[in-house]
């Protein structure tokens, strides 16, 4: 009896560890595969328009006639600049980490402009924050446009531009494709 109780407790501990490991790692790993696939096909730190099939996979609830542009960014080695150049009309720009956490979102009315620049950088870790807080001289940082700090090194900057009919999709895609995503701070490259 004691033997079975012991192994039952071992099973419970194994279950708790498996639960935690599954919840913490499996979903992120599963989605990272999709992100890596997009990066392999379209490149990292470059802006591209999703095909209707790719759009249906990422956003199954959105109409097929809309245009979705994506930049798979990687800020592990340095800042990435997302320069949006969007046509008139309703649009939504959202920046997600590769763990599907939305860290920034704006629509055309909130933005007030169809052309804007977002500087994507890695959020400082705890030690870096402590060091910065204790530095006597703060280094002046040039702030050009908006700045978004990502807690993860990789993520997606997504632009969604709905169109009322499929005939306008191609034209809208050409206009949305003017947006750029480049490695390096804003103002360079």
């Amino acid at each position: 009896m004691k033997k079975h109780l012991f192994w039952f407790l071992v099973a419970v501990v194994a279950g708790v560890m498996a639960h935690s490991a599954f919840a913490l790692f499996v979903p992120g790993w599963w989605f990272s595969r999709e992100v890596r696939q997009l990066a392999r096909e379209h490149g990292k730190n470059s802006f591209f328009i999703l095909s209707p099939e790719e759009q249906a996979k990422l956003f199954p609830g959105l109409p097929r006639f809309g245009v979705t542009g994506v930049c798979v960014f990687d800020v592990a080695k340095g800042n990435v600049t997302f320069a949006a150049d969007l046509p008139d009309g309703f649009w939504i720009t959202t920046i997600y980490t590769d763990k599907a956490e939305a860290i920034y979102s704006v629509n055309n009315r909130q933005s007030g402009a169809n052309s804007f620049t977002v500087s994507l950088s890695r959020a400082p870790g705890l030690i870096e924050q402590v060091i910065k807080a204790t530095e006597k001289e703060a280094i002046a940082e040039i702030d050009s446009g908006w700045t978004v700090n990502s807690p993860e090194p990789r993520g997606l900057a997504v632009v969604w531009y709905p169109t009322p009919e499929i005939g306008l999709r191609t034209l809208a895609a050409q206009q949305v494709a003017r947006s750029r995503c480049t490695a390096g701070p804003a103002g360079e490259g």
Partner: peptide
């Protein structure tokens, strides 16, 4: 968020 990740899609903005 894990639900969306497992489905291979992103949550709405």
């Amino acid at each position: 968020r894990s639900h969306y990740l497992l489905e291979g899609r992103l949550p709405p903005a």
